[in-house]
Each structure stands twice: as C-alpha cells, then as structure tokens.
Write a protein that binds this DNA or RNA. Sequence first.
RNA 1: GGGCACUUAGCUCAGCUGGUUAGAGCGCACGAUUCACAUUCGUGAAGUCGGGGGUUCAAAUCCCUCAGUGCCCACCA
Length: 744
Amino acid sequence: MDKAYDHKKHEREIYKKWEGSGAFKPGKEGKQFTVLMPPPNANASLHAGHAMYTIDDIVVRWKRMQGFSTVWIPGTDHAGFETQYVYEKELAKQGKSRMDFDRKTLYENIYKFVKDNSGLIYKQFKQLGFSADWERSVFTLDEKVLNRVWKTFMQMEKEGKVYRDEYIVNYCTHCGTSLAELEVVHEERTDPLYYIKYGPFELATVRPETKFGDTGVAVHPKDKRYTKFVGQEIEVEGLLGKFKVRVIADEMVDPDFGTGVVKVTPAHDPNDFEMGKRHGLSVKQVIGIDGRLNELTGRFQGLKVAEAKKQVVEELQKAGLMIEIDENYKHSVALCYKCRRVLEPMVMPNWFIRVDELKKPVIKVVENEEVKFFPKRFKKQMLQWLKIMHDWPISRQIAWGVKIPVWYEIEPENDNIYVWWLDKNSQLQQGVASEILKRGTPLSEIEEGLQRVKAKTGEAAPKYKVALDKPGENYLPETDTFDTWFSSGQWPLVTLSEEEYAARLPTDFMGTLEDILKFWISRMIMFSLYLQKVIPYRDVYLWSMVADAKGVKMSKSKGNVVNPIELVDKFGADALRMAMIFGVAPGSKIPLSDEKVKGMRNFANKIWNMGRFIELMFEAYGKEVEFYKEELFRPRLALEDMEIIKKLTKTVDVVNRGLEKYRFADAAEAIYEFLWHQLADVYIEKVKKREDKEVALSVVRHVYLTALKLLHPFMPFVTEAVWSEIKDLRKYPDQMLITSRWPV
RNA sequence: GGGCACUUAGCUCAGCUGGUUAGAGCGCACGAUUCACAUUCGUGAAGUCGGGGGUUCAAAUCCCUCAGUGCCCACCA
C-alpha cells in the first residue's frame, strides 16, 4: 500500500467497479426502499448546493447495506423559465433575441442547447460518488412525462379544476413571461412619492405614469373628509385633457397614508385590480407587454415606463398639477427573481388551478404527520403557507416547456384572438386573428411563424378544445406552456412506473433544499394525493444553504462561491462529503471552507494508514495467527480488547440512531471520533506493545473492518479502497464494501 | 405587520426531554517524532453559555422580557 491515500488514484476506478457490478440496482430480496433524486436543471453544472445530495447518498448506501431492495432514481428538469433565461443570454451574445424566432424553432433551438449542455451534472454526481441507478434517469420532457402531464391536465380540466381568467399577474417585460407570486422577490427601495392634484382631491402616488389607466379614485368608507364625494363622478384634469372617474369607498384605503385618497388603476396594480373588481370599475390597460405605454396615452405612446414617468412628472409640474415630491419614500418593489428588473403588474389571460379542494388533503397529511418534516419547524412553515395558498397560475408565456394542450377556435366575426407571428420575410406581425385571415393571410403562414396567441377570457373567450392534435381547420394552439412545477410536481408519478406504485409509493425519503419547499414539495404531495390517493414520501429532510467559511450565503456578487468540483480535485470526494456533514446541525447553514475539507482529507488518509498498518502487522505476525477470517480469539481477550469492542458496539449504536433520526452530524462525528481517537490513537498504540499479537490482531481486524462499514456511507471511496487493499485479511475477499452487510 | 429560528472558546458550530470539572472541527502556543500516517503524535491556553428578571435543591438547558442576527409570509397608493 502507498504511504498516503491518493484519491485521484482510486476514485474513478472504484466508481467504475461499483457501477459495473450492478450495485446501484435494487437487490432482488429485502423490503423496498425508494428515494427520488430532486432533478437538477438538465443543462446545469454542479454547484455547492448539489453537493448536499450527499445526504441522500448516505441514506441510500446505509439502507442498501442493511439489505433493503434500495433504489435511488435520478432525473433532470427542463426548468422552463430558468433555462430559457440562460439561453436568451446566449442569444444576446449573438445579437439576437427570442423575438427573432417562431415558437417552434425557439423550442427546438433550446432543446438542442440543453442536449449539448446536459450530461455534465451526472458526470459530476458520479465524481462525488453518488450511487443512483443512472439507467433509470428521467428527463421532464421525456415522452412518458409529457403524457402523464397532459393526462393530468385533461383530467383536471374535465373535473372543473382548471379555469382561464384575466388576472393581474406580475409580468416581466424583459423575460416576456408572467411570474407566480412565489417567484417574485421584494426589495426595499427609496423612490419619490408624488403628491398631485386630482380633481377636488390631492393624492399621493409613486406611479404617475399610470394615471392614463385610472378608472376610479378611492377613499376609506369612514373617512369623513371625503364622505360627500363617494359615489360621485368627478372630473380630473390630466395631461391629455379632462377625464372622469368614480369615487369609491373601500376598506383597503389607509386614511392615514398621504391624504387618504388613492387613484385606482385596475390594469396596473394588484390592489387596484381587486378594488376595481369589488366596485365594478373598468380595466384600462395603458402599458403593453413590451413595457411601453400604448396608444391610449397620446403623445406618450411608445415610451418605456421609466422614461414615461420622467416626462409625465415634468409635464405635471408645468401644468401646475404637482404639489410636492417626497424624495425619501421607502417601499418595497416587486422584482423578477431571475433578471432583477422591476415587474409590471399586468392584466392578462392565464390558466389557473383551483387549489381550495386540492390543498385540503395536503394540509391533513402534513398536520397529522403522515408526511414528516425534518427538522420539524418546516411543518409549520408548510402549513402556514398551505393555508394562505390561492389558485395556482400554471401558464407561462415562454416557449421552453410543456405545451398546454388547448386549441382555440377562430370565428370569422370575432376579435377575441390576438396573434403575434413572423411572416414569410421573418418580420414580426401582430393583429386580430379573424381580421388577418380576412385580409388574405393564410392560417398556415400564421401557424408557421407563430410566436404567441392571446385569447380573451370570460364572456368574450373563444371556444377551445382540449386536445393534443389540432382538432379542426380553424384552430390556433395555445402558446403558453406549463409552469415547470406543474410537471416536476408529478415527479414521484413519472419516475416510478405504474406497476411500481403499489410497492414503492410512498417513497421513503426525500432530501432537498428548503427553498423549494413550497414550489415543489407541496405540489408533489398535492398531485400524488389527487391522482393516486397516496402520499409521495414519508420523510422530508430539508437542508439549508451551503455557505462560505464565515457562514455567509454564497453569491457571485460577493465572490465567495466555492466550486465543489475543485474541492474534489484537491482533497477528494470523501473529504468534501464528510465536510458537508460534519458539525452541521439539521436545517442550519453549511459553512464550507478549504480548511474544513482539508481536515477531512486528513481523516481519509488516517483511515488509509490504519489499513496499511494492519496489513503490515499481519505480514509480520500473521503467520503465527490463527486468523480464520474475521473471527476473534475470544477465550484470550485482554481487558483492553473487551473495551475497544464495547466501544465499537456503542459506536454502531450511535451511528444507527443518528441515521435513523437523520442526525447525520451525530453519526459522522461518532464514527470519526471512534476511528481516530479510540482505535488509532489508543488501541493501535497498545497493539504495538502487545506480546500476544495474534489476539490483538484478531481484534484490530474485526474492529477496523466493522468501523469501515459504518464509515462507508459517509466516505465511500477511501473505505472501499482499503477494504479492497486488505482483501486477503477478509473472509470473502471478493465482496465489495458497498454491498457488504451493515453491522448490527 | 404576522410567524419561525438563532445569539455557547479567536472562527464555524454541537450540547435531546434541567443534575458531577460546558464539547467538536479549524485556528493558536509549546513539545515530540527514523519503527502505519508531518495529510502525524503528545501537552496546553482559551468561554461570567447575548442583557435583565423569574421557576427550581439545581438552568447553557424551562418561563417572561429586552436587544441583535437570519429566514418565511403578508403589505406598502
């Protein structure tokens, strides 16, 4: 054996051996144990967060050694919005944008992009030693997933759980899609608050540029100052001349804010939208999906929102309508979580799922702990969120995703379908579908270059059919795609085959990052209960962010991002894995530093050298030892022999209990302490002085081999490496550690 | 504004349902070492357990309160 453990010399080879032996496949015997891998983005490369999948691997290896028929099913996610965003950045480098492509081409290009960039993450997972059954890998755009997702949608549509509605959504004019509330990030900003003259009132607003879309003005019902105006139509002087709005009284207005008067712009503010709905105000859209003011804004048409605001403010001042400007107004603004631009609340048609009924059983299984959360506090977080969860907007206006299987019927006399498409010369065109057809453009041309279809909702909505294929001549497809979580939410049902449901559902363990608790965990429980009347898994273990040595969250802007693969190169996979676990409480941040990983590399080396020492001792004294394979010299054991055996038994116990409770650090620390400070520092030092070497060696061999098993789930490579180096000292020299029996 | 955590050695953190000298990893100081390992070994310094109050024979551990930090949610015209 070499003097020091060189991970580079062993890791690759050992992994090949495992994989080639079929060790990652479920055994034919034993109870089923199933773990699903949270699918990383298909085109992603490994980041520190992924390294935490180590926890899943520990559980899987542990159960496999315990004799369960264990399988860890991996997969990748198409990650709709995330991926399209990355792709568009690539496009921008070539001076192009998504607007240069029809939808079909854009999808195909992204598909190719993803294919070209996928595979890397699995390679990296393998470098970390993950023992998943790679041949079972599922991609969320695989045929079987698509079929399942469409089937689900059709069932929900049939049962009235799906509806279309005009709804105010957060729209990112840069990314070209609406976002669910969950995807919105809020940021505290200081912006000017404008006090303007507004008919008989004065009022405060941060968005004077939306004034063109005002259809009402609101006061608090109990605000005596304004009671006499309620219900009246008032005339307001505006930049485009005078206009009339109705005064409404609504509880939502805070009489203490500003002057206690609010202008109501239902098309461009979520609260105003709600208020408008309550009082029957009309919705007047003045900002388009391109982020520019539209034809209803006169000379301001075509200006981007920020520029429009500037000009409107100037003109209000000139017109004497501006009273004062508070420059230090603090409020939070909604930002796109991806591009960090300010979102534009916008009214547009969306597909929704009614969650009231669907979430009830979810709340039940969380409350009575059929699904258990580790650490426990996430149960509360989950319940809190489930209770306020409202209808889920599942449509996204991006090309990269699972298409919504719906077709709209174009009626000759109806203007309820609006389309954007690239014509024969690749020029972007838009207009009302029925009118375009009347003007002689064939439907086939629109379909060919189709970018987007926007169909009205409510009474004006066109008839539609739910179908995968075009149901008739005069139809245009829905161009929206499903929210990524709509497909990944069905993960347990698509990774397992239907024949396996009975045996492997619920699955046993789900370890994932806490920040997708609401996006993903909740939806999986919901879909599994709705579609199969079964919970998707019994135990959910949430891990937290991987942070730097100081406990600060890693981020590119702070420059403290650690690349796990570099650490693996430097110190070995075992060292990184152990560093992720050691000294980390469940649910807390995981501080990662070179020093820590280095320390664990030293531990790996210690393990190696203990093996080396034992081998050398057996070479020197082995001939005299009746060491019939892993047996102890029971009748001649010394007191210190009994002691170390007792300590081993205790360690087995602590490791088991730690793993059972998902207290991985407890388990890891116990085995670390035992191997290094009990076995190496104390017992082995005594062995050197023993006269009855044959007895001591039988003990050291037994204890060491057993301890290697305990350590294997945490540090699989080095343990497997020494295990194989000292094969002649073992009873079954050909047996691999990965499939050996867990000590009891 | 509502909720959930956290505040213990220089740093990052363990200390479960209260009970003998409060622990680990890293770091630090001093020393050792041809005999498995310098990716080593030994010895050691270092904490009034965020502040205040309470319960108890006994509190880092339970309760109240104050302060700070982090996270989740809601909302901000």
